[in-house]
Design a protein around this nucleic acid. Structure first.
Lengths: 247, 247
DNA sequence: CGGTGATCGGTTGTCTGACATCATGCCCCA
DNA sequence: TGGGGCATGATGTCAGACAACCGATCACCG
């Protein structure tokens, strides 16, 4: 029997901790697709939590596609659990975080910053009024003199107060927004294969770098506001993205 | 107060029904981002279910990014609810299904079919032994004489028995596999922006169609077997993919 | 008068126990 | 031997209670 030595730091919620315990347990037991996962009763006893909490933990596993539930029978390992994928795109992370996870030391060149009234497109994407002031930030991420990402970020002016001239824009926008109480918790993104816009190619000498993967992303803060609209052009020969798909 | 006229048709689970009721309710009330959603107590009373069920329904909404929960305060609408995401890529669908959902009438040209020993790459991707026999299927999807997708499908021979010469390869591979008891339930995909391989461009006259979005996808069946390795090249100017991201 | 800590009402998180519903396999009987 | 009822074990739902947390109010004290 396993002890519930989880007393010192709940920190994250109990169900999350139990979920991880369950994952560890099933990993140790070398369970494969089709095998039965611990039942609610077993899980609650194994880890010393109530059935509700155990049930919640199992539901988290179901949400991740690790198990599927059959009423009256039990829960069973699904095939998706065997597919481990690192950094799925469905997990939000900032460009900075992503590059660091890839082992790059992300350097960032600020091409320009400006404050301007929102275009119709931007206003629509950010659910603000047209001509509301926004900050537009053009940057180039690179490593070892190799361009990796050309990005355009649009932020409603209110979310990032203070003079734009004296801020260090080379750092992470998401942490800057988080410092203002607008931590990003989710986003909706759209992926397309494109060429870099001609004028960008010309202005920054980014010719002949092949196709780019454009990610247009609207980011939502914890309070439910759209705080950032980003267009990130990723070098196709350098960057790739993984995703788990389920029926 | 709302009545619980849900007696005749449970059908789908109770929490799912309550979730939809909640969505309708919040829509009628014209709640916007930042507004508070019904509490667990309110929801359980409104729809005549226990608090556990109401809680579960609210959790489903949270899972969809419609609301965010704050311990001790309540649940609040997120702007993500206003961003409706059609056909998120995390939801598995076959190329045929996708094209139909886009309103295309997918026509499919079989460029070639062959049986051959698996390459090292293919063997690794499909977790089979090198030189195990596989079927290789090269196709072009198009509509109105416009090429949309160039695809290469690799299937271990065992999963699709019978003579390969007399099969209609223009239909959906996933349904063919499902008919053999190998229905695809999940997959791992990798997205990249690329140019079409030179020899493919030349052979099929696919020049000057701009960048392509390459999706390399390993599909697994319910029993956990890897039954299909697909490379789908999507025309960048025609196809785009959406995804919801969460921290 | 102003700051500060206690208290309270509201909300989500967790626990306990019970019953309903569903799926399966066994046993008994016709 | 075949079939139906039933025991068993699993998830689904219900009810009630208490804990943890947050925000606002209010009384107290310097």
């Amino acid at each position: 029997m396993m002890s519930d030595n989880r007393s010192p730091r709940p920190q994250r919620s109990l169900p999350l901790a139990v979920r991880d315990d369950l994952l560890r347990f099933m990993d140790e037991q070398q369970l494969g697709p089709g095998d039965q996962a611990p039942t609610e009763a077993q899980a609650s006893q194994m880890f010393g939590v109530s059935r509700s909490t155990a049930r919640e933990a199992l539901r988290l596993l179901e949400q991740d596609g690790v198990i599927t539930v059959v009423h009256g029978r039990g829960r069973f390992l699904s095939a998706a659990g065997t597919l481990r994928v690192e950094r799925p795109i469905s997990k939000f992370e900032s460009v900075t975080e992503m590059l660091e996870a890839l082992g790059y030391e992300p350097k960032s060149a600020v091409l320009s910053v400006e404050q301007a009234p929102a275009s119709a497109q931007e206003a629509s994407d950010l659910s603000i009024a047209q001509d509301d002031p926004v900050i537009r930030l053009f940057r180039l991420r690179f490593t070892d003199d190799e361009a990796l990402i050309y990005s355009v970020d649009v932020i409603p002016r209110d979310f990032l107060p203070g003079p734009i001239a004296h801020r260090d824009w080379s750092g992470s926008l998401t942490t800057a927004l988080a410092a203002q109480g607008h931590a990003i918790v989710s986003s909706v993104a759209r992926l397309r294969a494109v060429n870099l816009p001609r004028e960008v190619e010309d202005r920054y000498s980014l010719h002949d770098l092949g196709p780019w993967l454009l990610i247009e992303e609207t980011c939502v803060s914890r309070s439910g506001q759209k705080v950032l609209y980003a267009q990130d052009y990723h070098r196709g020969d350098q960057m790739a993205f993984n995703v788990i798909r389920r029926r």
